[in-house]
């Protein structure tokens, strides 16, 4: 029975001493993996070409307008949703997930809307809803007039922490 005890113990002793960091994946079937890598690359290239075709067809560069949302630290404002109106018409009403908020805080920029506009001036209104300082419900708007010319137009809605008055600031930047 002692041998039984020893056998069991040796088996159990191995795994607690494995490094706590992730073990590397074994290489059980390199052929499948290589094939998958090749397929991924080919599909990605195809996806890129389809994505570009779609953009050309649906949003030609002369009329294309994209509106982005970015955020810096997010200390004074916890974003829940953004509503966007262009020339009085609602074009986006977006509710954010915690993962998306995290991605924004870490420097990601979300393309909130892509659409088409004629050349000329257009009114853009954005409403930001969330929790403001001290957890209070917070809703603020930002309005601007954008000028659409030839070529695609990029507009960035920026949520910036203003430490001077401990309030969030909502700014619109035309690119």
């Amino acid at each position: 029975m002692r041998s039984l005890y020893t056998g069991l113990l040796v088996g159990l002793l191995i795994w607690p001493l494995l490094p706590a960091a992730a073990e590397p994946a074994s290489d059980p079937d390199a052929g499948i993996q290589e094939n998958v890598q090749t397929l991924k690359q080919q599909v990605l290239e195809l996806n890129r070409d389809l994505f570009m075709l779609e953009e050309e067809l649906l949003f030609p560069s002369n009329t294309q307008v994209s509106v982005f949302v970015s955020m810096d630290v997010g200390k004074f404002f916890q974003l829940d949703s953004v509503q966007l109106k262009i020339d009085g018409k609602e074009v986006a009403d977006y509710l954010y997930t915690p993962r998306e908020i995290d991605a924004l805080i870490r420097g990601g920029v979300q393309r909130l809307h892509i659409g088409n506009l004629r050349n000329g001036e257009h009114e853009l209104v954005a409403f930001f809803t969330g929790k403001g300082p001290k957890g209070r419900d917070y809703r603020r708007g930002a309005t601007t007039t954008i000028s659409k010319g030839l070529g695609p137009k990029y507009v960035e809605l920026k949520i910036v922490d203003r430490s001077s008055n401990y309030q969030p600031e909502f700014a619109v930047k035309e690119w």
């Binding site: 970015s70 993962r99 995290d102 991605a103 870490r106 420097g107 990601g108 920029v109 979300q110």
Partner: peptide, 8 residues
Amino acid sequence: GEVLFHFY
């Protein structure tokens, strides 16, 4: 920035 948004 948009690429980072998806990457994160």
